[in-house]
Amino acid sequence: MKPAPFAYEAPTTVSEAVDCLASHGEEAKVLAGGQSLVPVLALRLARYEALVDLNRVGELDYVRREGSTMVIGAMTRQATIERDPTLRAAIPVLREATRLIGHPQIRNRGTLGGSVAHGDPAAEYPAVALATDATITVIGPAGPRIIEAADLYDGPMSTTLAEDEILTAVAFPVWCPGSGFAVREMARREGDFATVGVIAGVTLADDRISRAALALFGVGATPMRFRQLEGELLGADFLAVDPTDFGETLAQRLDPPNDVHASTAYRTRVAARLVAEALDAALDTARQETTS
């Protein structure tokens, strides 16, 4: 469990990092918190000629409000996100999901950008980005560009970033008052990647659903949204929604993986329940928000 030889670059600015990455071409990999990449290197399941370490790039470590979004720098540690009071008020689902990532030691090192760029299909942050309609800023030799969360993943641990691009920030829209989110996750143990995970978000206006989002993780090659089913919720009186039914309907559209932790059938059954629970809880929260 020792990595194959690699060159190591430790730039201190984003522009240096972009140059480093460009100079090594396709054989380089960006290192953020290292919580997924380093074990993979040590097991020699992957190898790169060079690592471009972003840990000294201070300008990527920030949390700030920009209009109706919260923008978080890629190198912001998960532990920072967990504790940030502004984020907690503006994007409560982010904190709720963060607490399900690994253990405190992992969250002290792990970063938002690393998790989103790595794109583990069972990880929390990619699903949060997808559920909240976040946008991802990346930068390469040609300059910055924005990717919608929905367009970020094209396969398991595979993104639409170019080889020479670096993920620099994620902007999470602050949903309007009257919104509620809930995260439900089944993992074999506290802190494990999700066997099945669900994020539900709704906005209520006059007791009717005006916005809805459902993102599942751990059940496919990428985190998944269910826009057609979400659409069926729009305009509905929240009292008329049957979360259990909804969960069953959604689960029928899944074809989750089969592995040593859980079978396809198990994941499907649990997904139905977690969707129901998450939707129910999100509706509850939204209703409390509107009445408070």
């Binding site: 097991l43 253990h103 074999r188 143990r189 506290e190 802190g191 990647f193 040593v260 932790h261």
Partner: peptide
Amino acid sequence: HFVYDSTGNPLTTTFMDYLLPTAAD
């Protein structure tokens, strides 16, 4: 659970797949 498949290939070769109880469990 240390799992072999039918060809004798081990499937649980790291702590990602061979699950130990943690303090939380």
